[in-house]
């Protein structure tokens, strides 16, 4: 591609794209090594070509590009071998064809980020069906693949205004299926990272659709068993919402109190961390609406026999802003916690 005359560049580019539609079996690592090397070299050339040259992306090339990408990435993901797969403990099954797949994803990114890229042309091929299949790939066990998918979907969301509502709706469906049906989806954290940047960019006043997403998806997401895998991203999304619209604070805190973990201390520590992040940005006028039920829960945490829970709750008093809120409202907060503090200071084992 580097050596060909400009006039023949596009024709050769299309041939290389078609060549890269051939798929190889990487489970048999000795099979067809020559063919695998030819495709790897061709993919490298394609990445290089789109990344460095201008004028490569003319209209006829778009369908060939999308076809090559689709043939390579859209596939049925392997079933999780062991049903007891614990994402926190077990090593994920990595994608065997990653040597090729990575280059296809790299090529896709360079294509989207090229200064010549025209969404108006690409939207004929990057349509709702394409995006739906892209979202299904987020369930891949391979974290490297999910990382690329996250960046790609972030770019697609940014560049295709007409697909934004559809992408949000499909993310909704994935989360709801994850919460209420399967409790199994590997890409929740990655999707929440993208949504964090979307929430961050919401126009004010917030649309009802977005508030429904907070109440019907983000808050119930806290109830899922594998919360620890995506809690940081989830808390970030929640705080982004409150920085956009402080009037949602009471609803969020009451939701967290409703879903407060009863038997999982690890989750309780996460909830306390999230509460502190929320209190960091809370308006005093919102604080007074939730202080009573909130500090009753904090009091329960202070008296928890699990010292990490008790410690994390007491750590709130290390936060100057929270301290100032407590001092301004001590007539309500003190009665809620003093009895527990006094008892714990006498009886707690740690």
């Amino acid at each position: 591609l580097k050596d060909v005359a400009v006039a023949e560049l596009h024709e050769l580019l299309c041939k290389k794209l078609q060549q890269c539609c051939v798929l190889f079996d990487f489970l048999d690592c000795v099979a067809d090594l020559k063919g695998k090397e030819i495709k790897r070299a061709a993919l490298n050339e394609l990445v290089e070509c789109v990344a460095t040259n201008r004028g490569v992306l003319i209209e006829p090339v778009y369908p060939e590009i999308i076809k090559m990408i689709s043939v390579n990435i859209f596939r049925t993901l392997p079933p999780t071998e062991n049903p007891e797969f614990d994402p926190e403990e077990d090593e994920p099954n990595l994608e065997p064809s990653w040597p090729h797949l990575q280059l296809v994803y790299e090529f896709f990114l360079r294509f989207l980020e090229s200064p010549d890229f025209q969404p108006s042309v690409a939207k004929r091929y990057v349509d709702q069906k394409f995006v739906l299949m892209l979202l299904e790939l987020f369930d891949s066990e391979d974290p490297r693949e999910r990382e690329y998918l996250k960046t790609i979907l972030h770019r697609v969301y940014g560049k295709f205004l007409g697909l934004r509502a559809y992408i949000r709706k499909q993310c909704n469906n994935i989360f709801l299926r994850f919460i209420y049906e399967t409790e199994h989806f590997n890409g929740v954290a990655e999707l929440l990272e993208i949504l964090g940047s979307i929430i961050n960019g919401f126009a004010l006043p917030l649309k009802t659709e977005h508030k429904h997403f907070l109440v019907r998806v983000l808050i119930p997401l806290h109830s899922v068993k594998s919360l620890s895998i995506f809690h940081a991203q989830l808390a970030y999304c929640v705080v982004q919402f409150l920085e956009k619209d402080a009037t949602l604070t009471e609803h969020v805190i009451r939701g967290l109190l409703k879903y407060w973990p009863k038997t999982c201390t690890q989750k309780e520590v996460m909830f306390l961390g999230e509460i502190e992040e929320i209190l960091d940005v809370i308006e005093p006028s919102q604080f007074v609406k939730v202080q009573e039920p909130l500090f009753k829960q904090i009091a329960r945490c202070i008296s928890s026999p699990h010292f990490q829970v008790a410690e994390r709750a007491l750590y709130f008093w290390n936060n100057e802003y929270i301290l100032s809120l407590i001092e301004d409202n001590c007539h309500t907060v003190l009665p809620a916690i003093f009895g527990t503090l006094y008892r714990v200071s006498k009886e707690h084992w740690n």
């Binding site: 964090g196 940047s197 979307i198 970030y236 750590y315 936060n319 802003y321």
Partner: peptide
Amino acid sequence: PQKKKRPKLPNFPAPHFAMPPIHEDNLEKV
């Protein structure tokens, strides 16, 4: 009380994963 950002707790790192925001109204040149 003036809103002060909390001191970063030693074991609660700031979110390293925050991606660039995408503004709702206009076509963001991402």
